[in-house]
Design a protein around this nucleic acid. Sequence first.
DNA 1: CGAACGACCTGCAGGC
DNA 2: TGCCTGCAGGTCGTTC
Length: 270
Amino acid sequence: MPELPEVQTTCNGIKPHILGKKITDVVVRTPKLRWAIPCDLKIKILEQTVKSIHRRAKYIIIELDNIYLIIHLGMSGHLRVLREYRLPVKHDHMDITFENNITLRYHDPRRFGAILITSDISNFPLFKNLGPEPLSHDFNWTYLKNTLKNKNIPIKTHIMNQKTVVGVGNIYASEALFQAHIHPLRPAQSITAQEGKQLIQAIQSTLENAILKGGTSISDYMNSEGKPGYFSQELKVYQRQGLPCFQCKTPIEYCRVGQRSSFFCTNCQK
DNA sequence: CGAACGACCTGCAGGC
DNA sequence: TGCCTGCAGGTCGTTC
């Protein structure tokens, strides 16, 4: 589920509760997510204090005294702030409790997420091949133009590749391409300078707007307070196949692009 | 090397 | 009601 806006919303939501707080308990109930949760996780992070909380791509990075805790929410994960203890339910895989009695609870039905630790963040393998942050100045036309050279793959597949730019998942790829008037199946190398600049602008404004609305809740995403995000009300094409385009009334089309559902308007997107 | 595709999991909706 | 299929916010690893 969670794309960049949902991960950012989660970071923003947990930060005020745990920043500067010491970890007093760790409970791991499910050893295996995408990878095994490190068996020494508890020993490594217990008694440590949260120094900072950041997002890189779709990863949440919690900096502790001498180690980093890295959390990925996969397709169906979320973190929840519990002000008072509750009995865990199915798929509540891990709890981290702090000195202020706040418990951070990780819930992930499909278990595509990950909970990892590293002491050397600059050499963390999963970060090695990540592209620029979409909301940074590094994601500009000069950069994007270079990535498009000789690339015949669909532009939608290209912008969802975390090596091109991070954080853009299936929802926001469809939405940004609609906003930029670009058909998702256009070969990446066919994108003109004007279109490329429009696309960058569209990706940025879509993500920024989604962060402001607290992310998109399609089926089970919730923020750290257990509330849904409201960007779903702003979706222009995602899961709207057959419904009239908001701009021209043409029915929204559906097709698979790189094995992912894609939604677009044949009239507005060329 | 890049591109395509299977794999990892559970839950749910829809068809029969 | 129940079984089967296909699909779901991601992305790594294998194969071609």
